[in-house]
Design a protein around this nucleic acid. Structure first.
Lengths: 134, 134
DNA sequence: TTACATTTAGGATTAATTATCAAAAAGGTT
DNA sequence: AACCTTTTTGATAATTAATCCTAAATGTAA
């Protein structure tokens, strides 16, 4: 089951790439409608989800905010504005991270950071093992 | 204008602290209703927000998920399960962070991390300066 | 070019949270 | 305690973000 490249999917992808921004689904919806006026918002949502699963774009789930989609699927961190919620790429290697370095990137003034460690909790590990046995 | 400690506010705070968990507003609502059956969900939401602004509890805005509230307002990171979305405290200093150390904490198996640098973007800095002049 | 699984449009629906507003309660001040 | 001002509450409506539903349309492989 390969990825079927429909007209709408291609336009969603192309318009996001053209934007060079980190757009929300509804922001992109407005842009895409100019090219394909009859496209539905659900289609934009669906395709953004599919494209990010496929790895053609990136998905940004920012704390307490609307999801954004990244034209660049490559590995990199992000910086984001606590006032207007705009997101920018942080093209700086972890080794080089100093408050001064970061402060200069994209002209942001740094106010803090947020780190989430992701994993599978003990209970869910047990459940997974049970399933494996069946 | 000091924080007025109402009955409902006190119970919301006390029941969250008693739980020793990272609860969502609606989870806490169910608990609080047992003590104060006529309390409204909006009141629980409102007071959790106020209590976290005041610094009596912590607010966890986890990417793409429901907000959770932390009985412990102190500075510490969190680990969270990508399957059941449960959250646990990570009581381990940044200096001591190694994959092995983290793997042992709370029995999680680590799958990744998410880092967000927060700041004020150049445009918003300009706007702030304009306001200061007025 | 036919067959068929996938995808679409468009509206309906869900889930989480916030807003509204009249009535009630809190906390001074006499 | 009676009075007064401000804050808070409960109930519900509104909003926001995202997903679901179904018939119709479309892409792809043979």
């Amino acid at each position: 089951m390969p990825l079927r490249m429909t007209n709408q999917r291609e336009i969603v992808l192309r318009e996001l790439q053209k934007s060079k921004k980190h757009l929300t689904a509804d922001e992109l919806y407005v842009i895409v409608k100019k090219v394909m006026p009859r496209i539905s918002l659900a289609t934009v949502y669906r395709n953004l989800e599919i494209l990010s699963e496929t790895g053609l774009i990136g998905k940004l789930e920012i704390s307490g905010r609307q999801k954004r989609f990244d034209y660049d699927p490559g590995e990199h961190d992000h910086i984001y504005c606590v006032i207007c919620h705009r997101v920018d790429n942080l093209d700086i290697a972890h080794e080089d991270w100093t408050p001064e370095q970061l402060r200069n990137v994209a002209g942001y003034s740094i106010t803090g950071y947020r780190l989430e460690i992701l994993g599978i909790c003990p209970d869910c590990q047990k459940k997974q093992k049970k399933k494996e046995k069946i």
